[in-house]
């Protein structure tokens, strides 16, 4: 296959950036999208042009490092991570537009690489259970109903890639935040800090300049891990509960 790529090139955080067109020839349909970019980068290096920077690591869809917007869709036309997208999803002669995640909370570092530190800071604000090492009771001390454990797991599969933010018309990080609130809120171990957690995480989310959620649902539609949209409803419920709670502080 022969592919024409329109790629966002930006030298650094302060550069304005622009789209540049490249041709990639002899693309195999069995290549992953990132391997196709590897081929481009090998070619560019030999031609003396700096290769395109993009984030990636495990290349098996679990670390959450990779992610670009392909033809207007976060992670491209399949519901999976960019590293698990294969060129057989495209056709010979296609022109493909590749852009970085675009959000104020995810500033571009270079080309297709963005800084997602805002996600870490949301977790720092309360996305954990305080359990100092060594203090834990026996694992079977507290049974967890299977349905709750399963729902906690569904939410916990979030890989923090940021596709939800990239796809959201408001650039909201609410699905990411809600996934963590739901994961920990479904477990008995997560109850003592449940109210404080949701309050602090939502505040941090807003401080990071993410947009607000308007329940459009693009986030869940592009999520490579299928984080359910209803986690956001659960977060809302938890927050409203925390704001009206009479629990002493």
């Amino acid at each position: 296959m022969n592919i024409t790529l329109r790629v966002w090139r930006q030298k650094g955080p302060d550069d304005k950036g622009r789209m540049v067109t490249y041709k990639v020839e002899d693309v195999s349909p069995d290549m992953s999208f990132l391997e196709m970019l590897d081929v481009l980068n090998e070619k560019l290096t030999l031609e003396g042009e700096e290769p395109v920077a993009f984030d990636h690591d495990c290349r098996e869809g679990i670390c959450g490092a990779c992610g670009v917007v392909i033809d207007g869709e976060a992670h491209g036309p399949e519901t999976t991570t960019t590293c698990q997208l294969h060129m057989r999803s495209f056709s010979d002669g296609d022109t493909i537009t590749v852009e970085p995640w675009r959000a104020k909370a995810f500033p571009v570092i270079k080309d297709l690489v963005v800084d997602r530190g805002s996600f870490d800071r949301i977790v720092q604000a309360g996305g954990y259970i305080s359990a100092p090492t060594g203090t834990a009771p026996d694992a079977h001390a507290m049974p967890v109903p299977k349905a709750d454990a399963d729902r906690a797991f569904d939410a916990a599969t979030c890989i923090g890639c940021g596709a939800c933010v990239a796809a959201c018309p408001n650039a909201s990080g609410m699905l990411f935040t809600a996934a963590k609130v739901t994961h920990l809120g479904m477990l008995p171990q997560g109850q003592p800090e449940r109210e404080a957690r949701v309050v602090q995480m939502v505040n941090q989310h807003d401080e990071e300049d993410f947009g607000g959620c308007t329940n459009i649902g693009e986030c869940a539609a592009v999520c490579p891990k299928g984080i359910p949209l209803d986690t956001i409803s659960q977060l809302n419920r938890d927050l409203l509960g925390a704001l009206t709670s009479s629990r002493a502080e």
């Binding site: 259970i129 060594g134 834990a136 694992a139 967890v144 299977k146 454990a149 797991f153």
Partner: peptide, 22 residues
């Protein structure tokens, strides 16, 4: 043995059976 206790306390959602145990 302690690792499992620690992880459960942190909220790691290990697979469970219908009785709620691991």
């Amino acid at each position: 043995v302690e690792i499992i206790d620690q992880c459960v306390a942190q909220g790691v959602p290990f697979a469970r059976e219908y009785g709620g145990l691991l």
